[in-house]
Computed example of a mutant assay.
Amino acid sequence: MVEADARMIDLVFDLGGEALSAGYPFALWAELVRHVPQLADDTAAGVLPLRTAESGDAMLLPKRAKLVLRLPQALAGHAVALSGRQLDVGDGVLRLGTGKLREIQPHVTLQAQLVAGADDEIEFMKVVAAELAAMGIEGNLICGMRRSLSDGQRTIHGYGLVIHDLRPEESLRLQCTGLGADRHLGCGIFIPYKVISGLDW
């Protein structure tokens, strides 16, 4: 049996709220750090992108939305203090339920919504392949759409990415380590992806 990296774990909160701006990750991270300053001291800390639906310039939250922090276990004890807090994220408000720990599990196919990197797709994929090789990961790659994330002051560019045919130990390594920069903004964080045909992302 392959076990997850004992240093990393997901901390999951039920989430109440209605809508956020498209560039919400910047304001969300600032608000999380305001409540838990220790988060700013560890570059391994990440925030999984929220599942939202676009409506004009707003991102609508579903009723069963979750906020998931991917953290070193040493930070989880601090971050659980977010339970029951209200987060003021730009013009939106998020209400957090009780934080629950969830172990990271291996999956043969993983997806990242946005991996930060070069504007040119060929150069982007070349860098990604080199980083994966350095990590000892040999999965097959599917590059998604070019994406960007901006709060009006800073803009991050990159692509969506699916990696499939992963061995269990590779899957755990990738989920625990991530790929590229800005994991605190949801970039380079991998989650299970069950279908790899007909991608439109």
Results as ranks from 00 to 15, higher is better:
M1V: 09
M1R: 11
D5N: 11
D5C: 05
R7Q: 14
M8Y: 05
I9F: 10
D14P: 15
D14N: 12
G17Y: 03
A19H: 09
A19T: 00
A22R: 07
Y24A: 04
Y24D: 04
Y24R: 01
P25R: 04
F26V: 11
F26W: 15
V36P: 04
P37Y: 02
A40H: 12
D41Q: 14
T43C: 08
T43Y: 09
G46P: 01
V47Q: 11
V47N: 05
T52D: 00
T52A: 04
A53V: 14
E54W: 03
E54Q: 06
D57Y: 03
A58V: 05
P62E: 13
K63S: 13
R64C: 08
A65K: 00
L67V: 04
L67W: 04
L67N: 06
L67D: 14
L69M: 09
L75N: 09
H78G: 05
H78W: 12
A79C: 04
V80Y: 05
A81E: 13
L82G: 03
L82P: 11
L87A: 05
D88F: 15
D88T: 14
V89D: 11
G90V: 07
G90Q: 06
D91H: 12
D91F: 08
L94N: 08
R95W: 15
R95H: 14
T98K: 14
G99I: 07
G99A: 13
G99F: 04
K100T: 08
K100V: 14
R102C: 12
H107E: 07
H107R: 07
V108E: 15
V108P: 08
L110E: 03
L110C: 01
V115M: 01
A116C: 12
G117W: 03
A118G: 03
D120Q: 10
E121P: 02
F124Q: 06
M125N: 10
K126L: 04
V127D: 00
V128S: 10
A130I: 10
A130F: 08
M135S: 02
M135Y: 08
G136R: 06
N140R: 10
M145Y: 04
S150K: 02
S150Q: 08
G152V: 06
Q153H: 15
Q153I: 01
R154L: 11
T155D: 02
I156G: 03
H157A: 06
G158F: 07
L161R: 04
V162G: 05
V162I: 12
H164Y: 15
H164N: 11
D165Y: 11
L166C: 08
R167F: 09
E169C: 05
E170P: 10
S171K: 08
T177W: 09
T177M: 10
T177C: 08
G178N: 06
D182R: 05
D182I: 01
H184M: 13
G186R: 06
I189S: 00
I191Q: 13
I191G: 00
I191F: 01
K194F: 15
K194C: 09
G198H: 13
L199K: 04
